[in-house]
Each structure stands twice: as structure tokens, then as C-alpha cells.
């Protein structure tokens, strides 16, 4: 049986807009417009889409904050709308931009509160805390007030807080936003372990395709409240014809580089931008360039999710 089941879930809001001095207009907005999908226990799923597509409305319904206007929804065996507190014990939630830790208190205090609010048995609490502390390298930070933690440390602290009660599902909203490369790597590594070893089902929303590439075996794309893609990442790249960008700094300004499998999209003095298909490895392109041009520096940029999706729509519109 699937852990998360949605069947034709809809959610609309009434929005009042002021049209004149005193006149107001009521409008129905369909934030989620007929979602149907299942997520099996132990899966790691990326949930992406442009802002305002219905992502956060979906998450709010899955966590029991919002009640669907219509449709069937079950998470971990309960109906989130009717059994909010029972559900709360079975899920963990982390918002990238909003910490649930206590700002002025040592990190440990937030965990102690979680132990009591979630009524976690002592032995389990200690085991889980020890595991999180070890994997997230929080050992030296437990007695530090949260306000003194760096963004990356705080995110790791938040992850631990969300997992102390052994949730079956972990919802993550932009878990790597604003983090440096090292912190991002640590967070991803930890999530992979939680998913593979603990079997925790993970559903994450993100704007960072690397999160999805490294963590998720399945991607769902939502737009205007409907699923427009549900499959693996390669499929998304194929549909979206997405491209990665190789940025090269040459020793001097040169005419556009000519190599097979990539095309120059921009030149600015000694710096040139080359686009190549996202499914392809960067290595042959780099090798070809290095062979014939005086390279000073280079970097590879991942395609932005927005671009991938935009291209996908453009294709759907043409096809």
C-alpha cells in the first residue's frame, strides 16, 4: 500500500480584490486542481514547479494544515484533515527559510521540547539524538544558542529536530536554500542516509536541480495546480531539452570556440559560455576545449528548474 495517496485532490481559495474605492471582487482561485498520485514507502521524490504553482498548498494539505476542497487524501494511514495531531506524530517537516528551533536557547533545549511534545520514549529519543548528532556533526553545537549558529549548522539542527520522533514521512521545503556548497553536500548526504537506511519517505521541494539529481529517483512537476510531469529526472531533461552551461575563461579574448557537441551562447572578452545537453557528461567538451584553447578557469552551471520547465511548456505548446 502506498504511504501517500492522493486522488483527484482539489483546493480552491476565494480571493477578494479591490477594484474600486469601495467595490470588491470575489474570485475563485484553484491552487490545486485535480492531483492524483501515489508515493510508496521509502521513496524519495522531488516536487517542483514555479512559484504559485500549488506546491505549498499541496504540502499544507499533506501536513494537515489545510483541508482539501474535494478529493481523497491519505498519509501514513490517516486522513490529514481529520486527524491532524495523529498525523503530526508520523511526519517531520523542515522549512528551509523558517527555523522551528528556539532562537535564544541552546540547540539541546529545542530537542528536549520535541521529546516532550512528541512524547518520545527516553531510550528511543537518546538513540535518535545520538545518531543525528553523529551524522550531522552536531556534537559541539548542542549547547550553543541557535542564534549563534551559521545557516548551515541551523539547517542541520532543524533536520535533527524533525527526525527525533521517527517520522514515516519527511517533508522538506527548500532544504538547501542559501547554503554554501559544503553545507549543501552534507545535508544531501544525510538525507540520502535517512532515506536509504531508515527507510524514511522523503518529499522535497526545491529550486536546486542538483538536490533532485543527487537524491530523488522520481520527480513530479506541478504547474497551475496540475501535474505536468511524473517520472525520473532524465525524462524531465529529455522532455525539457535542458542544457547545462560550461563557462570558460581563456587567457585572452578569442573568436567563439568551435567544438563538437556544444555551442557558444555568449562571449564577453576572454569569457565564453557554451551550452551542451544536460544528460551528457561535461568531460568530453572540457577536454576538447582544453586541447585547442589556452584555458585559465572553467565552471559548469546546472540548468535552472525554471528554464527546464519553461522549455518543457514551450515544447508542449508547439507539439
Amino acid at each position: 500500500m502506498a504511504l501517500i495517496e492522493l486522488e483527484d485532490v482539489r483546493r480552491s481559495f476565494t480571493v477578494r480584490t479591490r477594484t474600486g474605492r469601495l467595490r470588491r471582487e470575489k474570485r475563485e482561485v484553484h491552487a490545486v486542481d485535480g492531483l492524483t498520485f501515489d508515493i510508496e514507502a521509502g521513496a524519495c521524490v522531488g516536487y517542483i514547479g514555479p512559484n504559485g504553482a500549488g506546491k505549498s498548498t499541496t504540502i499544507k494539505m499533506l501536513t494537515g494544515i489545510l483541508v482539501p476542497s474535494s478529493g481523497q487524501l491519505r498519509v501514513a494511514g490517516v486522513d490529514p484533515a481529520r486527524e491532524r495531531t495523529a498525523l503530526a506524530r508520523r511526519i517531520g517537516v523542515v522549512f528551509g527559510q523558517r527555523t522551528t528551533l528556539w532562537w535564544d536557547l541552546p540547540l539541546r533545549d529545542s530537542y528536549e521540547l520535541a521529546r516532550r511534545i512528541y512524547r518520545i520514549p527516553d531510550a528511543r529519543y537518546r538513540a535518535n539524538l545520538d545518531r543525528c548528532v553523529e551524522l550531522l556533526e552536531l556534537g559541539g553545537l548542542l549547547d550553543t544558542p541557535v542564534r549563534q549558529l551559521s545557516l548551515g549548522q541551523r539547517m542541520r539542527g532543524d533536520l535533527a529536530a524533525a527526525l527525533l520522533h521517527d517520522p514515516q514521512v519527511l517533508y522538506l521545503d527548500e532544504p538547501t536554500i542559501g547554503l554554501d556548497v559544503v553545507s549543501k553536500g552534507r545535508v544531501r548526504e544525510f538525507l540520502r542516509q535517512v532515506n536509504r537506511e531508515q527507510g524514511t519517505t522523503v518529499l522535497l521541494t526545491t529550486h536546486d536541480l542538483v538536490d533532485i539529481e543527487q537524491l530523488c529517483d522520481r520527480v513530479m512537476v506541478i504547474d497551475h495546480g496540475r501535474l505536468v510531469h511524473d517520472g525520473d529526472l532524465a525524462g524531465l531533461h529529455a522532455v525539457g531539452m535542458s542544457e547545462r552551461t560550461l563557462v570558460v575563461d581563456l587567457a585572452e579574448a578569442r573568436p567563439p570556440i568551435e567544438v563538437a557537441g556544444a555551442r557558444v551562447v555568449k562571449v564577453d572578452g576572454p569569457r565564453q559560455w557554451l551550452a551542451f545537453p544536460a544528460q551528457q557528461s561535461a568531460a568530453p567538451v572540457v577536454a576538447a576545449v582544453a586541447e585547442r584553447y589556452p584555458l585559465v578557469d572553467l565552471s559548469v552551471r546546472e540548468p535552472a528548474i525554471e528554464d527546464v520547465i519553461a522549455k518543457m511548456y514551450a515544447r508542449v505548446a508547439i507539439g
Binding site: 501536513t63 491532524r84 495531531t85 511526519i91 522551528t100 511534545i117 512528541y118
Partner: peptide, 13 residues
């Protein structure tokens, strides 16, 4: 501020 949502996902009234 979204604080109420945070309260709603805790297993307490």
C-alpha cells in the same frame, strides 16, 4: 508570518 502553520504541524493543541 506562518507561525500558526508551524503550530498546526506539532502534535499539540
Amino acid at each position: 508570518a506562518g507561525t500558526l502553520d508551524t503550530m498546526l504541524i506539532r502534535p499539540a493543541p
